[in-house]
Amino acid sequence: MTTVEVFAPPEVVIRARATVGEGPVFDRRSGGLCWVDIDNGLLFENDLTTGEQIVSSMPTLLGAAAPRLNNRGFAVAVEGGFGLFVDGELQLVDPVLPESYRRMNDAKCDSQGRLWAGSTHKEFVPGVGALHRWDGRAESTVMASGFSLPNGLGWNADDTVMYLADSMTHQLLKADYRCGEEDLGEFTQLCEVSPGLPDGLAVDMDGCVWLAVWGGYAVHRYDSTGRLIGRVPMPVEKPSSCAFADDGTLYITSASAGLSEADLLQQPLAGSVFALSTTTRGVPVHAFAG
């Protein structure tokens, strides 16, 4: 039987009441932590040293934002597709989701600086979700389809495996990945996650996946075979995603969506951002090269 390491509860570092806090990523340009509130179209840029916070608002649902490598602003996955957010202005560059019932969800850049994002039906209709890839220079490409709610995604340190959560089917998936090539292997189940829904994730240099479990009051750590080897107890019901800082600290976003007033009295930190010290390091998450 595999021993499951139980970590100490994380500390709150950003007190907030985000509806759906998501998409944490570090901006190499500033050193700050960026994250979003999907439902409210908000982008947060936090200086964790000074406590300064910059909040930007967009007139649309905001699935995720990726810092740009050589330019100002961010590449964003929004309700209608992919765009750029620069100097407070949103430009929808690739309107790949014209239907009002679809939206982009979580997104992350690969080692070549291309933005991958999952799209979903707003009612999470099975099979409608897809995985898209956008380089900023041409129209995006659908790389895989048939999902319900494609969510947290990432790659191992060798760039040979891609991970993807399909939340509504309770699955953490994996596929063979060849960096720089056009083909992507078929996604297969790495493990089933229940109770709760698999949400955002981060991959560490030891080959393990740290997965926020929405509705599960926890972040799980799985090894490369899908075995649960670690559990981070959370003071909130809906941890939503996580990202590593360079020093190995894991930052965890959360949500307050769907919680009653009574729930919020019991979970006053719902929608906040937390930090956990670990003994590992995260696989680097890259900036958008487009």
Rank of each mutant, 00 (worst) to 15 (best):
M104E: 02
M234Q: 04
M168Q: 08
A243T: 08
P98E: 12
Y101S: 05
G51N: 09
A212H: 03
T2P: 13
V161A: 06
V273A: 00
G32T: 15
L90H: 00
A257F: 14
L43V: 13
R178Y: 09
M58C: 14
P59E: 15
G185M: 08
L276E: 10
T49N: 15
V25D: 04
H286D: 04
A275C: 02
G146D: 08
V128M: 07
M104P: 01
W134Y: 04
L92W: 12
G21S: 03
K108F: 01
V128T: 08
P9T: 15
T278K: 08
W116L: 11
V20D: 00
A202D: 08
D183R: 09
V20M: 02
A130P: 00
L184M: 13
T50V: 05
P126N: 13
Q267W: 07
A144K: 01
D206W: 09
S254V: 05
E186H: 12
E52R: 15
G88K: 11
T2N: 10
V161F: 04
T160V: 00
L197H: 09
T188P: 03
A262Y: 11
F274T: 02
R114G: 09
D94V: 05
V273W: 00
H220N: 05
G258P: 10
D27W: 00
S194A: 13
G196C: 14
S256T: 12
L97P: 00
W155E: 07
L259D: 08
R102W: 05
M205W: 12
G21K: 01
L92S: 12
D94F: 04
G136Q: 10
G215D: 15
P59N: 12
T2K: 14
L201D: 01
G41L: 15
A262G: 10
A144I: 03
G41H: 08
W116Y: 06
Y251L: 14
L259V: 07
T225E: 07
A8Y: 02
T49M: 12
V193N: 11
S277A: 08
R227G: 07
V93L: 07
N71W: 13
V6N: 09
C208Y: 08
G129P: 00
P198L: 13
I252F: 12
L190Y: 03
G113M: 06
L33H: 03
G23N: 08
L43A: 14
V142R: 15
Y222P: 10
S241N: 14
V25T: 13
R227E: 14
F124P: 02
V13L: 15
P235G: 13
W214H: 06
Y251R: 05
G271F: 06
E192I: 11
L62M: 03
V209K: 03
S260D: 07
P59W: 04
I38D: 12
A107N: 00
D263G: 05
A157K: 14
G154Y: 00
R102Y: 11
E139A: 14
L172F: 01
E261R: 15
M58V: 11
A130F: 00
F74D: 04
D87S: 15
F288P: 02
C191F: 03
K174W: 08
D223L: 13
N105K: 05
D87N: 09
G51F: 13
F187C: 01
L250A: 06
D223S: 07
T278Y: 09
S254F: 06
A202T: 07
T19W: 04
T2M: 09
F288H: 05
G196V: 14
A130N: 07
L201E: 01
F274R: 01
E22F: 02
G146F: 07
H121F: 01
E99Q: 15
P235F: 03
V213A: 02
D183N: 09
